[in-house]
Nucleic acid binder design. Structure first.
Lengths: 153, 153
DNA sequence: TACGATATAATCGCATGCGATACATATCGC
DNA sequence: GCGATATGTATCGCATGCGATTATATCGTA
């Protein structure tokens, strides 16, 4: 967990931290997404949950959680809320009653048309190739972090 | 807010979203930092708050908030908690009683020695030059997003 | 078959983020 | 100097994330 190749820690400013760059960029995305999300009537977490369901419907809670990097303690309340809002249905899998399967309703699918018309690419100030390169680089970083956590156990 | 240079939205998967890459990388950093933070007895937000104070002591709440991209509604409870924990003191500025100035205690400065011995550079799987390049790229992205929010108002 | 081990969701408590608002102080206009 | 406005902080409510625990269902195995 220690590197000797970085600048002397004594000079390390908050603005040099990669974790803080990610943290603050995440906050900035939240603010940038606000108008889009308000129009959809969704929170950010609800939004990415719905996106994951557009991609693969009828997922289990844990399956969805793997894609979103969330656990049932976070997901269950969100899914219940989205169910109340009429965008999905939660039902125990008859094959294995431990699992709960999530299906989008028609209303949930209808959101897709509205949502796909909106994106934030321009707000990033990145050219399409830069956008994709950065996206992939961050995914790699994320996966490295997850791997290091797993290996450390 | 619309780009025509990106892949057809219909094919856009959650895994292609830059915002989700950032979001999930932020969650991953949180998990990776857990052992460090547990040893320090701090949460992540408390940690970056303390780092910002090491950098500049005696800041106002709003000054600190600008560096952390947080507002008083988030910061005040955190600062009060850190005060109770003995790491800082909050006091009204006699020059302008509206402002509250935050000073680290000796205990707050002592944390620095412990904390500076720990970092996560290796866990990122990035070479030092890549690390710095990515850090700067994300800061630029963040600043672009903030600017686009401001300009959009 | 019975029963402990495992797997899956859900529940609970705590710590953020943040919108809306309240409150106190300072500044401005006149 | 005084009411209106602006500024800085705090409070409140809601929605996450997540550690710890619980409840239920399934599995493994004697």
């Amino acid at each position: 967990m220690k590197s000797t190749d970085q600048p002397a820690p004594a000079n390390l400013m908050l603005s040099d931290y990669l974790c803080f760059a990610i943290y603050s960029a995440n906050l900035a995305f939240g603010k940038a997404y606000k108008p889009i999300l308000e129009e959809l009537g969704l929170t950010y977490t609800q939004y990415i949950t719905i996106i994951a369901l557009w991609e693969t419907d009828n997922q289990t809670v844990s399956g969805l959680g793997e894609k979103l990097f969330l656990e049932s303690n976070t997901l269950t309340p969100i899914l219940k809320k989205l169910e109340v809002m009429g965008y999905l249905e939660r039902q125990r899998d008859p094959e294995d009653e431990r699992q709960v399967r999530i299906c989008l309703t028609k209303s949930g699918w209808r959101l897709r048309e509205k949502a796909l018309k909106m994106d934030l690419v321009e707000a990033t100030g990145l050219a399409p190739d830069e956008f994709e390169k950065m996206q992939k680089a961050i995914v790699t970083l994320r996966n490295n972090l997850i791997k290091s956590v797993r290996d450390g156990e």
